[in-house]
Design a protein around this nucleic acid. Structure first.
Lengths: 286, 286
DNA sequence: CTAAAATTGAATTTTTATTTCAAAGGTAAA
DNA sequence: TTTACCTTTGAAATAAAAATTCAATTTTAG
């Protein structure tokens, strides 16, 4: 995993001094490459000991190794300077393409990079052992809800998808321990989704969430939480777009992991689904 | 210049001991990354002093820098050989991630690459000048329909989104020359979408389509057609997934081109939409 | 309010990088 | 052949950097 991914993943567990170092690294990756521990400690207002503690916490064996990883990351992600540029008036199509492509690639790469394997594992197990799977999300996140719903339906795990709290709550009230409610929310702060989560918890329904990275109320409330990468500082307009792609990427990863884990049942079902849809279309043509 | 390049360039000027170190580095780049000077000296049958003399001769300021350059070189030249592998039983999450990532990046890159600028231009003009925009798609493509609908709604162009022919046809029957029907279909061959296209054409409604690349009936029927890249020969299971990401990427490109072209109206509306949703959430919290 | 645990950076120790330097070997002119 | 003068080399010394220890301090839990 990349240094950036490691840092974002560990963010919650870092002490204050460690977090200062981590922030400095995120913001000055290029410079850190050429720094010694002492310099980095000074630049980030901490101490050499904290720098070392951070590297250990990131599961990197030495500061030297950290620099090597960082160098590799920077080469890999070497993204054009087009970064972070917002869309402007009367722009050329080619310029828009470049901007969107570079930020899309970055989002997708980073999201994949920082997938938390344990959480995905929990989520997949929870779904496999659940009786029913409820999925909830509003606004743009409802697209992710639909996507999840369609995918799991295709492998023989019927789901209940909602984007209306009034429709969801009665179902949740009557749900129980063997059910899972998976909530999608980019910010993790919409009152609607928080209410849904709270209600589910009170009924003993297992709550999973998919949010963007970083502290948010929904993730805190959830039993299981997975994350998309937080776009660096990409402008408002593009950010919304990237979060969708990132959500879809993450869903794909989770879905295919699920398929792989329940292969005998799921893969067969998936192939059968493709076949039945094709046959249906054939019959319509006659 | 890469470390390898530097060494080959300097080859003639190296002393015997320096050459031994240089050879060792060329043959064991990966290991050298993790070695100290002393270890490298021993492994190459020379001395620490010779190692340093070599780095200076290569015009590299320190051994630490040499390692950083080497790390970058290795990353740059490491190409991903994970093409076309399907998901199998009980696979590691990391392996699934790699497969999905590499095929996702490819789809998105290719789709962006082969955007037909003229067609996008036509489509954008048609929408700008239209009275009403109908969007239609079934199955997984309905996610793209919803995505388009939400995006244009946000900039003050209300849309009519459907995934049910029974709901769509009555609307199309009563539509006219100034309306646009945009149909999303990966294959471009579903009977439902072909029927929708035919009906619209008969009523003089302009038909746009978004399909995968290559000959397909829907594209032929359409007045305007845009394409996602045709996945090379990626296996069935992953292909479905990639086509969604590619559709979304293409939609983003078209959308932001649209925003850029109608900037004064759209950008303002977009920002206002973000604001009004935020305010609404604030009010719910009180 | 107190005891235990966690956090922190100064100081120290350990390790690594770099420089120095004397020995060894080579070369060319006398 | 001798001698003076390069060049190369690695052992040893030095300098620098990395990693650890530990006591002081803050935070947390009871």
């Amino acid at each position: 995993m990349s240094v950036r991914g490691r840092i974002l993943n560990a963010k919650g567990d870092l002490s204050e001094a460690e977090a200062k170092v981590a922030d400095y690294i995120l913001k000055h990756q290029q410079q850190v490459l050429k720094m010694t521990i002492k310099q980095l400690a000074k630049a980030s207002n901490s101490s050499p000991a904290s720098v070392i503690r951070l590297t250990k916490r990131l599961d990197i064996d030495s500061f030297t190794t950290l620099r090597i990883l960082l160098s590799s990351d920077l080469t890999k992600n070497h993204s054009d300077p087009k970064d972070n540029a917002d869309i402007t008036k009367n722009e050329q199509l080619s310029s828009i393409k470049e901007k969107l492509l570079s930020s899309a690639l970055q989002s997708i790469r980073e999201t994949t990079d920082q997938v938390n394997e344990d959480e995905v594992d929990h989520l997949v197990s929870a779904i496999i052992h659940s009786q029913r799977l409820f999925i909830f999300g509003i606004g743009a996140s409802y697209l992710a809800v639909e996507n999840i719903s369609q995918k799991w339906n295709r492998i023989g795990y019927p789901t209940v998808a909602d984007n209306d709290l009034n429709a969801l709550l009665p179902k949740v009230i009557n749900a129980g321990k063997n059910d899972v409610l998976w909530i999608i929310s980019n910010s993790g702060e919409s009152p609607e989704v928080l209410l849904a989560a709270q209600t589910a918890k009170e009924k003993g329904v297992k709550v999973a969430s998919l949010t963007r990275f970083g502290n948010n109320s929904l993730a805190k409330l959830s039993d299981i939480s997975v994350h998309t990468s937080q776009p660096m500082e990409s402008p408002n307009r593009i950010a919304a777009t990237n979060s969708l792609l990132a959500q879809f990427m993450l869903i794909d990863i989770i879905f295919y992991f699920f398929v792989s884990k329940s292969f005998d049942k799921s893969a067969k079902a998936l192939d059968a689904s493709h076949r039945v849809v094709r046959d249906y279309k054939q019959s319509l043509l006659k």
